[in-house]
Amino acid sequence: MIALGLEGSANKLGIGLIRHDMSTTPPTVTILSNVRHTYHPPPGEGFLPKDTAQHHRAHILELIRNALDEAKITPKDISVICFTKGPGMGGPLTSVATVARTLALMWNKELVGVNHCVGHIEMGRQITGAQNPVVLYVSGGNTQVIAYAEKRYRIFGEALDIAVGNCLDRFARVLNLPNDPAPGYNIEQLAKKGTKLIDLPYTVKGMDVSFSGVLSYIEANAKAWLASGEYTAADMCFSLQETVFAMLVETTERAMAHIGSREVLIVGGVGCNMRLQEMMGQMAEQREGGMVYATDERFCIDNGIMIAQAGMLAYQTGYTTPLDKTWCTQRFRTDEVFAAWRE
């Protein structure tokens, strides 16, 4: 069985093709293709829904063709078309869903609407082999500490205001760092040159975190620090990373202690930050039997494969999304999905 996955909930447009060979138990999973095209706004700006949707519309057909060519298959080999139902930005989501619907009608395929967050989790589990981890899902739009229980991915902790990636992206705009390849990546590189730790607000509420305070504080002071030479841009990137990542690792560890789990899986765009992965590893080393699983940018950053993977798992349990239910939603919580495929 082959699934086509279409993802475009934010500024990445991703198309993926995945094969599940059902003759083995568990099915043998092969990634046939995983292509992506990213919309980069100019430095100092974020991506707006309208422009992002326009980007997706302009590139999606070419990208699907590339994915099919790379996989060396034709549309008739595809069993199911999976698309992101939400959460995400409305315009970009619907521009991709329209293509999914059209292809399904043209090629006479079933559709499966996928929760973006569940896509990240299932891809991470597939790639790393983590069995039942506490999941830290960190990206531009989401910050959640998740664990599976009784057929749902339950949210134990999350950002009470803005997502961690949003905090980093917005700070990158203050420093006018380029959005290519990603603002967070450029902060990560600059942070390596930082030496001084600035005393920043540190806000942890149980398993929840808050980033708006630390962002406001550093935004309000950045210009003065730069002008006086008290701290460099590198020091600020370094301090911001050390502070917000410490908050994330602390809440993840708290969830592990609360649930009694030893494994952590990091997913989402911010999850490919090597410093975050390193800190999580150091935390796990101080816990008996602690293990960290993470993936690289191919699977961490939004992609089509993860949508294909999560959609395929649902499809194998007999789940499909009827055409009149293929609408998108900007708000779609991880714990709303009934994970019929999980034990």
Partner: peptide, 15 residues
């Protein structure tokens, strides 16, 4: 917020 933290822990840990 203190109560909210408990509520979240409650419903996620004990469906």
């Amino acid at each position: 917020v203190d109560l909210y933290v408990l509520e979240r822990a409650f419903v996620s840990t004990h469906p």
